[in-house]
Design a protein around this nucleic acid. Structure first.
Length: 431
DNA sequence: ACTGCCTGCCC
DNA sequence: ATTCTGC
DNA sequence: GCAGAATGGGCAGGCAGT
């Protein structure tokens, strides 16, 4: 669309509106004009992704078309502004060097663009523009009750989060939120809405703010800023958030639809922040197609000294990447035929069935951002019966350890890590 | 009524 | 959501 | 560097078969 359709559209409009231009202007001139026009069309599409509305307008305005020729329309989703991922606060600070910025919690929920239409009805759209109004009747009630006199129309950006109001207003994970029954009422999963932007209200784009920067914060040193934001990130993680968003307040601040914009930075995982797990690959699945013959993913296990069993914890290398290719040779050696078992041995305890099983022979270092609880993977049943811990966002270090398989992480350590992690998942609700 | 399989839609 | 690829 | 396509994990729900 952006690279082909819209430039072509711009070209067509241009030729249609002033056919003489191509004889008059230089080639470069024409190219520049087309570039400007097609960028304007792209920009318009981002706030009004509906060609039935855009094309007539562009045809009418011709070469003079710009975003301001059109307005947002409640009921038609704006392409949501997206953030850029960073690997830590220092990187975020570097990107925002000498700029004013602010920080917000990034809640672990579902993005929602909430519209109030001209007829007064409330509509909810997902990140990808899908209608999800029917999934959140309670949201509709909240807005119908509270927004009557405030605005006749609006478009706002928000995060819908699951909150346990009966249990200290604890914010629950996305996993729990998505377990809501679709379509109808659901009394089990209560929600809360965090609005973080208003792009449109009463027919206008009201919020082109000039931000006033607090003087004291503007004077902080780098170290003081880092400390402050670190504390804020820590707060966010302790509040069951996924991390924080760092948003610029500089002159270029504003809503940029559809862009993985440098104006919003996400910090949700800091390398080295978490403990390393030492896990043993006990099984693997075959890849298909042209990757046939290779293993992916690997099933990783820890050791339970009491049961004298290996218990699966997570899968790693669930897809191929550059780093994987570097270790293909190593894999082949490690799991050559004599190391492959004919069937799952009794000292492997797992709820999943991998294609093949290996002798316990090496230990890999695995780091992860946090644990979730799921039905699929293994083994730590003292967390919640029938549910299993699952390490999320893991990375792997193949330069691993001289440890022997029985010196890998013990199941008790992993349970302890789960209980002490700052994110409190559903599984701990019974504590 | 239960199951596995598949889809669609979230992240 | 992340990751890879072609432009 | 960007946009698009391809991938993963997880959820509810539809549907066919038993």
């Amino acid at each position: 669309m952006l690279r082909t359709i819209f430039p072509a559209l711009a070209h067509a409009i241009d030729m249609n509106s002033c056919p003489t231009l191509h004889q008059e202007g230089t080639a470069k001139n024409i190219k520049d004009k087309l570039q400007v026009l097609s960028m304007a069309v792209v920009e318009a599409y981002n706030i009004l992704p509906n060609l039935d509305l855009i094309v007539p307008c562009v045809m009418n305005k011709g070469i003079d078309f710009s975003v301001s020729s059109l307005s947002m329309v409640p009921g038609i989703t704006i392409k949501p502004m997206l953030e850029k991922i960073t690997n830590g606060i220092p990187q975020a600070l570097k990107l925002f060097e000498n700029k004013a910025f602010t920080c917000e919690y990034k809640y672990d929920g579902q993005r929602a663009q909430i519209h109030k239409l001209v007829d007064g009805s409330i509509c909810v759209f997902s990140r990808n523009g899908g209608e999800s109004t029917s999934r959140f009747p309670d949201l509709i009630d909240i807005f119908k009750g509270s927004s009557k006199s405030v605005a006749s129309t609006f478009i706002m950006d928000a995060e819908i989060v699951d909150i346990d109001r009966k249990n200290g207003y604890r914010i629950m994970s996305f996993q729990v939120l998505s377990s809501r029954r679709r379509g109808g009422k659901d009394t089990l999963v209560d929600i809360c809405i965090f609005v973080f932007d208003i792009m449109f209200a009463n027919g206008e784009h009201p919020f082109k703010f000039c931000f006033q920067i607090e003087v004291d914060d503007a004077c902080l040193t780098y170290e003081a800023t880092l400390t402050k934001i670190n504390a804020f990130l820590e707060d966010a993680l302790c509040s069951s958030c996924e991390g924080i968003l760092v948003k610029t307040l500089d002159v270029d601040a504003g809503y940029s639809p559809s862009k993985h914009s440098d104006k919003w930075l996400k910090v949700n995982y800091v390398e080295g922040l978490n403990d390393t797990l030492y896990l043993v690959p006990i099984g693997a699945w075959h890849e298909n197609g042209r990757k046939a013959g290779w293993y992916s993913p690997f099933l990783m296990a820890c050791f339970n000294p009491e049961a004298k069993k290996y218990q699966s914890v997570c899968c790693v290398m669930s897809r191929f990447s550059d780093s994987f290719y570097r270790f293909v040779k190593l894999m082949k050696e490690l799991f050559s035929r004599d190391k492959v078992l004919s069937k799952k041995p009794p000292y492997y305890q797992t709820g999943v069935a991998s294609d093949m099983w290996f002798c316990p022979q090496v230990v890999w270092e695995i780091r992860g951002a946090y644990f979730t609880v799921s039905l699929g993977l293994i083994c730590i049943t003292d967390v919640k019966m029938d549910y299993f811990l699952h390490l999320k966002k893991m990375g792997i270090n193949f330069c691993a350890s001289d440890r022997s398989p029985k010196e890998c992480s013990a199941v008790a350590n992993i349970v302890e890590m789960f209980h002490s992690q700052t994110r409190k998942m559903d599984a701990t609700a019974g504590d």
